[in-house]
């Protein structure tokens, strides 16, 4: 099967004044199209840094990150923006919605930034919001929504441009366990029913035990310590 994400010997070194902080030290991750992968690790192990590489939010200091076979280091700014907007849907721990915009407007945002014209953005946004279980409250602003509702809006936004990959960094980290499970179910649903490649970054070991997980990567000190492949 073809790898949709291919991370080969990636190093990320932050320069803190004269001190070099290596956040990733020779990271290797391969994820196939349609897989459900979990990246686990303790705090500070480099999970978010790894997610930034995979999501084309940042470039590695050394090594290769390939998305769909294309090296992100060879893309220019606007191509990177296009890849982020159309291939990947991000879900963040802190939701990261735009506070001045309503739920619908937040969901239409990626369609606005898309290169090609999207017909009936609002209709599409409503449809997605209904899909994630937010049929009401569509004209509310993030400040008027609960944490779980906000994360649903964020997930709806990640689906706006029908991306192949959903990349979630601690998606349940700011939710209570009941809310967290609902969000978890929603993400799993998207993977199973809508065939999305789902990558979840977390320090919560419960995710690794979920059924349907294809890959689990354990990170430690910026490198893979252990990995498990089902099937």
């Amino acid at each position: 099967m073809k790898a949709i994400i291919d991370v080969q010997d990636v190093w990320k070194i932050y320069q803190m004044g004269s001190v070099e902080v290596p956040a990733l030290r020779g990271l290797d991750i391969t994820i196939n199209k349609g897989d459900f992968a979990v990246i686990m690790g303790p705090s500070g192990s480099g999970k978010s840094t790894a997610m930034n590489m995979v999501g084309a939010l940042d470039l590695p200091t050394k090594g290769i990150v390939k998305l769909d076979g294309r090296n992100i280091a060879h893309m220019d700014e606007s191509t990177l923006a296009q890849v982020r907007g159309e291939k990947i849907g991000f879900v963040f721990q802190t939701f990261n919605l735009i506070p001045t915009l309503t739920a619908i407007e937040n969901v239409t945002l990626p369609m606005i930034f898309k290169r090609s014209f999207v017909l009936d953005k609002v209709e599409k946004a409503k449809k997605i919001l209904r899909l994630v279980g937010l049929g009401e409250r569509m004209t509310h602003r993030p400040g008027e929504l609960s944490g779980g509702e906000r994360q649903r809006v964020a997930i709806a936004r990640s689906l706006a441009n029908d991306p192949e990959i959903i990349l979630a960094d601690e998606p349940t980290g700011n939710l209570d366990s009941k809310m967290g499970e609902q969000i978890m179910d929603l993400l799993l649903d998207l993977h199973e029913k809508h065939k999305k490649t789902l990558i979840i970054v977390t320090h919560d070991p419960r995710f690794a035990k979920l059924k349907g997980v294809d890959n689990v990567f354990w990170l430690k000190d910026g490198a893979i310590e252990k990995k498990r492949r089902e099937k």
Partner: peptide
């Protein structure tokens, strides 16, 4: 917000 918009596909121009 600028970071968020860039993450969801906003180009520098946008």
């Amino acid at each position: 917000e600028i970071g968020i918009m860039k993450a969801i596909g906003a180009s520098n121009n946008a």
